Structures are given as structure tokens and as C-alpha cells.
Simulated scan of single mutants.
Amino acid sequence: MRRRLMVVLVVLVVLVSGCAGTSRPTPSVRTIPPDNRPPAASTSPSSSSSETPVSPPSNPSTPAVPSTTGALNVVKFTQVDFASPSGGIWCGMAADYALCHIPFDGYKGQQPTTEQICPEEQLDVTGVNVTTDGASWFCSGDPSTMPVKGSTQVAWQKGTGFPFVKYDGQTLATLPYDKALRHGDYICRSERSGMTCASLVSKHGFKVARAGITLF
């Protein structure tokens, strides 16, 4: 009897302890390892918002108004004529224009016809000029610029040290590469890629080269 009572007591103790150990389930908490945590939102401006937009590079073939820096001022001469160092391009400047003729040798570019430029005059299209109104092609019977040594149009060259060049049996005053002449509101610069002239007022001009002529 005593043994049975002990067994009953043991069973009761087990039942009571089992009830006491039972608890309500709690929501599980998922811990994210530090290496896998999403980055915290930055309070500083993003790098893209602080960057200055970069403009696309300009077309290198598009001429621009030459810089006046270092240009030789020839405004005291009524008209100045000059040739490219090769002698194949003749140009001129005055108070109200700048012009260049179509290259006399090796020209590979296009040019308009007489009917398009001067149908009434029936003259040849011989070059381009620029005024405050803009740049355009022109017609003439003979070259209107004559950069021949000894002429009054090349008096500007005296004392400059700029060389002459022999071309087609004539001695021509030249504007060396990387040099520029300024006559009032007009400027011309000689480069290996061609001769560029422009109006400093209208910002229009042209570039003459054997490869072609561009108006801007």
C-alpha cells in the first residue's frame, strides 16, 4: 500500500512538472548576419547629384572663330593680301570683309555653280568671303587678291620676318602656320589644316582647305 502511494505521488509530480514547463509559443526573431544586412540609407548627397554634367565634345571638323591672342594688327593698311605657306591659297582683308580664293591646286572639295551664285553675271565662282552679314561664296573674273611681292597689298609684311614663297612663277607674301592677322573686326588664322577667317562681330566665317571649304 505504501509502495502504491509512492507511485501515485511520483506520477502526480511528473504531471505537475510537465504542466509547469509548457509555455505559449513566441514569435521567432530572424537575426540577419552583419555581412548580409542591407546598407543603411546615406544622409549625404549621392555622387551623381554633385557631379557637373560633361558636355559632349564638339565636332572637331566644325570651324570656330580664331582667337585674337597674338594676332598681328594690320588695321593701318587699307588692304592686306597674303597666301598660305604652300602658296596655293590666296586671301585678303580690309575694313569691311575678309576673303579667300578656292585653292589653286589639289582642291578636292565641292563648290556651287555659277548658276547658283551669280547667274546674271556669268562669272566663275572663285572663293568665299565674310562680312557682318555672314559668310558666302562669290564670283569674279580674276583673283581679287594678289599677294605678290612688291605690291602695296603686302606692305603689311615688312618687318614681320614672315617668309615669301615661290608659287607658279610668282613670289608671294605668306601668313605662316599658327599665325593670325587682325584687321578691325576681322581675323584670319593660318593652320596646317587650312585658312580660317571670321567676323568678330557676327561670329560667321569660313575655312578654306584643299579638302574642302566650310562656311559657318
Rank of each mutant, 00 (worst) to 15 (best):
R2G: 13
R2V: 03
R4Q: 14
R4A: 12
V7P: 00
V7M: 10
V8Q: 08
L12T: 05
V13A: 15
V13C: 10
V16Y: 07
V16P: 00
S17D: 04
C19R: 02
A20L: 12
G21T: 11
P34M: 03
R37C: 03
P38F: 01
A40W: 00
A40T: 03
S42T: 09
T43A: 13
T43K: 13
P45E: 11
P45C: 06
S48I: 06
N59Q: 04
S61K: 11
S61G: 00
T62R: 12
P63N: 04
P66H: 10
T68C: 00
T69M: 02
A71I: 07
A71K: 05
K76S: 15
F77H: 14
F77R: 04
D81Y: 12
D81A: 14
A83H: 07
A83Y: 01
I89D: 02
W90F: 05
C91N: 02
D96R: 14
L99E: 09
L99W: 08
F104W: 05
G106M: 09
K108D: 14
K108C: 04
Q111F: 13
T114R: 06
P119S: 14
E120M: 06
Q122D: 15
Q122K: 15
D124T: 12
V125P: 09
T131Q: 13
G134Q: 08
S136M: 11
W137D: 04
F138Q: 09
C139Q: 04
C139G: 06
S140F: 11
S140N: 13
D142C: 00
D142Y: 12
D142G: 00
M146A: 14
V148F: 03
Q153C: 01
V154D: 09
W156P: 03
K158I: 13
T160S: 14
G161E: 08
F162K: 02
K166T: 11
D168R: 14
G169K: 11
Q170H: 10
L172Q: 04
A173W: 06
Y177T: 14
K179D: 05
H183Y: 08
D185T: 09
D185I: 00
Y186H: 04
I187S: 01
C188D: 09
R189P: 01
E191H: 05
R192S: 12
S193Y: 11
M195F: 14
M195S: 06
M195L: 15
C197K: 01
A198H: 10
A198G: 05
L200N: 07
L200M: 07
L200D: 04
V201E: 13
K203V: 00
H204N: 15
T214Q: 15
L215N: 10
F216S: 02
